[in-house]
Amino acid sequence: MSPSRTLAASLFLLAATASAFAADEVNVYTYRETKLMQPLFDAFSKASGIKVNVISASSGLEQRIKAEGANSPADVLLTVDIGRIDDAVQAGISQPLKSDVLEKAVPAQYRDPAGHWAGISMRARVFYVSKERVKQDAITYDELADPKWKGKICIRSGQHIYNNALFAAYVAKHGEAKAEEWLKGLKANLAQKPSGGDRETARDVAAGKCDIGIGNTYYWALMNDKDADKKPWADATRVVLPTFVGGGTHVNLSGVLLTKHAPNKANGIKLIEWLAGDTAQQIYADANYEYPVKAGIAINPTIASFGKLNPDPLSIAQIAASRKAASALVDKVGFDN
C-alpha cells in the first residue's frame, strides 16, 4: 500500500474505534488528568461492566460541550477546582441531578442545592514552612500580610486557579477593600516575583530563599512519598494547616456534574454515585492524596500527619462568586509584577 493509502486507512480506523460506542459506556470529559483518574475508572468498569471513554484537557471543555450541543457524547464532566464547576454551570451545560446516594455521601456544603454539581474530593491550600527557621505552629492566612514575614514568602502566580480560589475566599469573608490591603501586604512580603508551581515553592523554602511556601496538600505528599529526587524538599519543610482568623482551612474541590444532553444518562449517574462511594473515595484518599468528601473514609497517613483538617465553613458558591473580584485585585495590586 502507498504511504498515503496507509495513512487514510489508519485515520479511518481511528474514526471507527472512536465512534463505535457500545450501549454500556459512559463518556467522561475531565480536567483531572486521565492518568490520575484511570485507576478509578478501571475499578468502576470492573464493578459495573460499564466502559469509560475519556478525554482530558486543561481548559475549554465547557466550551467544547457547549459547541457540541445536543450531539455531544459527554455524559460527565470532572473538574479540579470550583472555578471550572462554576463556569460549566454558567455555560448551561449541566443538568440537575437528584440523588439520595449523593445527598447521603456528600456534605451539603460541598454540593449544589439545585443538584447541578457535587464535590467528590478535596485538597487544602496550606503552608510548606521551613523546619529550621519557622518555629510557629499555628499560622493564619491573614498573617501572611504581617510585616514580620517580610521577604520570607514564596508563591506561584496570583492568577493561578488555586490562588484565585484562596484569594476569592478572602474577598468573600472580608470584602474587597480589606482583601486589597491583605494582598498588598502579602505582595510586600514576597521573597521573589510569583512564578513556578507549588513544587518550586517547597524547593525555594528548602533552598533558603524563603521561609513559607504556599501550596496544595497533595503536592507535598507526592514529593515526600513518591519522588526520591524531591524528598529532600519535603524533608526540609513541614506542612502547617493554616486557618482564616475565626474560620478554618481553605479547601478546593474536585467536582463532578452530569451534562445537559448526556446520551448515557443512566450510566453517567451510576458513575457519579460510584465516585462518591466508599471504594472510589478510598482511592481518592490513597492514590491521589486528597481528602475524601465522604465521612468515615480513612485519610492517607501522610496527609493525616498534617493534623486534623478543619475546613473553612464558607460555601463553595460564595467563593466562586468572588473569583472575578479576586482576580481583578491581583492585577490591581500588581501581585504578579
Partner: peptide, 26 residues
Amino acid sequence: TLLLRPLNVDTLATSIYQYASRGSFE
C-alpha cells in the same frame, strides 16, 4: 490537541502534559 482530540486518544504531547500538570513532568 488537548481540546479537539477524540475520546480515548492521547498524543505524546498530551501525555507529557498530563504528567506535568500533576507536578511531576519528569
